[in-house]
């Protein structure tokens, strides 16, 4: 098997700008989405994730424009999430230029949404985004940008979502998001062992060693945000380090 491990820059988008916070709060400006996406593709990114973190209908309108503008320049896959509540919402994002659509809070409230999107657009289009917070036993699913803790167990939820049509899991550790303290490896291990679809590790990357650990723990891909936006490293540097660690990446 030669499928390469992926390095995926994530752009959190609000009102047409890239932003980044810590544990989903205290957002600061991090640039223009089209410029960022083009730069990261040039650096060797395998895919781009856009997360619309706007909370308003106006923001959602901006997001469709942003998806269209990024699509025009981007020749690698574009996965878009944030605020998707129906198969029609997913359809609008795909028409605007997304290749995959992430669903999160709405899937927790109405799990049949996963099947509705998968049946209409295919499992390869259907990404379940899960935000997990560590608890006394395992991890609880958190929703509404981390504001609300549900009673759902992350591993159980992922297993169930894959059974009804999720083709990929974007797994974010709420505890680690934006903290640059490394991925939650136990979380990655637990979910990867429970599902057959690819798992994207997210939340906490600070250096190449963290990506190596995440892939070693079973992730098919590693999501990065803060370390790129701050200009501390490039996708190319990270991939070189992964190659040196014996991990197959697309050069």
């Amino acid at each position: 098997m030669t499928l390469a491990s992926r390095v995926i820059p994530c752009l959190d988008i609000k009102d047409g700008r890239v932003v980044k916070g810590i544990r989903f709060q205290g957002l600061r400006d991090a640039g223009d989405p089209v410029e960022c996406a083009a730069l990261y593709e040039q650096q060797g990114a395998d895919e781009i994730v856009l997360l619309d973190v706007s909370a308003t209908p106006e923001g959602r309108g901006h997001a469709l424009n942003t998806v269209g503008a990024v699509r025009t320049v981007l020749s690698i896959p574009l996965s878009v999430g944030g605020g998707v509540r129906s198969a029609d919402d997913a359809g609008r994002l795909l028409e605007a230029g997304a290749d995959k659509v992430g669903i999160n809070t709405a899937a927790v409230s109405r799990p049949v949404l996963i099947a509705e999107i998968a049946e209409r657009f295919g499992t390869q289009c259907t990404v379940l985004a899960v935000d997990g917070a560590a608890g006394p036993t395992g991890w609880a699913v958190v929703v509404e940008s981390g504001m609300k803790r549900t009673g759902l167990d992350v591993v159980e939820w992922c297993r169930k979502a894959v059974a009804v049509g999720a083709g990929e899991i974007l797994l974010t550790s709420w505890d680690r998001d934006g903290t640059r303290s490394g991925y939650d490896l136990d979380l990655i291990r637990s979910v990867s062992a429970a599902v057959t679809v690819p798992v994207i590790a997210s939340g906490g990357a600070d250096r190449a060693g963290h990506l190596v650990e995440a892939i070693g723990a079973g992730a098919s891909a590693a999501l990065i945000a803060s370390i790129l936006h701050d200009g501390d490293t490039t996708v190319g540097d990270l991939k070189q380090a992964l190659t040196a660690a014996g991990i197959v990446v697309r050069p």
């Binding site: 030669t2 499928l3 390469a4 491990s5 992926r6 395998d46 895919e47 499992t123 390869q124 083709g167 990929e168 057959t196 679809v197 690819p198 098919s220 891909a221 697309r250 050069p251």
Partner: peptide
């Protein structure tokens, strides 16, 4: 892993007019 989701090597057979080896 299914779906196969990501980048993989493509190796053309001799005589290909379109495909070059790559990812």
């Amino acid at each position: 892993i299914v779906p196969q989701m990501g980048w993989n090597r493509v190796e053309p057979d001799p005589g290909s007019r379109f495909v070059e080896a790559g990812w």
